[in-house]
Amino acid sequence: MIKINELTKKYGDKIIFEKVSGLLENRNIYALVGTNGIGKTTMLNAITQPASMDEGTVEIDGIDSRLFQAKQNFFYVSDSKEMFLNLTGYEYLRFVTRLYHRRIEEMEEKLKELSITFKLDHSLNECIGNYSLGMKQKVYLIAAFLSGTRNLILDEPFNVLDPESIVVLKKLLIEYKDKGKLILFSSHNLDLIANFCDSIVFIDKERKIYLCKNPQDYTQLENIFFQKCV
């Protein structure tokens, strides 16, 4: 569960968000939608890195995000694909497992399963810096699933994946949700969103949050988008 209370973020004089609030509940997949440059990544950064907020609070599973314990309750896959380039895929995944206090034996089994699912099992001993863009994204996503946290926050996770991996990721996310967890991801692909998520978080042209249930219909969703965001 993620609760945003009167979040404000400014860059100098430019106001990105002012007193934005919202509640995202467990057992749901939320898509974060907005036009380019409206502040989707800034919003995700504000949720995951409270020091970057100017005002307001964020609660993650009831814990103030400024407290260290809150970090154990979410995993964030950022839009940057330039992280941990000097580690091998395996080193990075082991590192994440330890950070989130997962059992190594359990992790090994799950890691094997996930790496085969994402077809990354033969590349785990190579440096992440040598991976293609899609492979980097896959390794960060595997880390997200390995962390086992109750909230997954993903910045444009489908962007660089091949069609097969998109299907795999959708399946894994639905399984994750069915375990009672929350997934929040940003995307521009309304077609994918219409057929996949439970709810949609729009950042409208006023830079406010507009939360609605997924109409499960592309045309209807497109209309809402143009009405609210453009």
Binding site: T48, Q49, A51, F68, K71, Q72, F74, Y76, S78, S80, M83, F84, V96, L99, Y100
Partner: peptide
């Protein structure tokens, strides 16, 4: 910056 959103104090 890469490790700030992980549970590392």
């Amino acid at each position: 910056k890469n490790v700030l959103c992980y549970p590392i104090s």
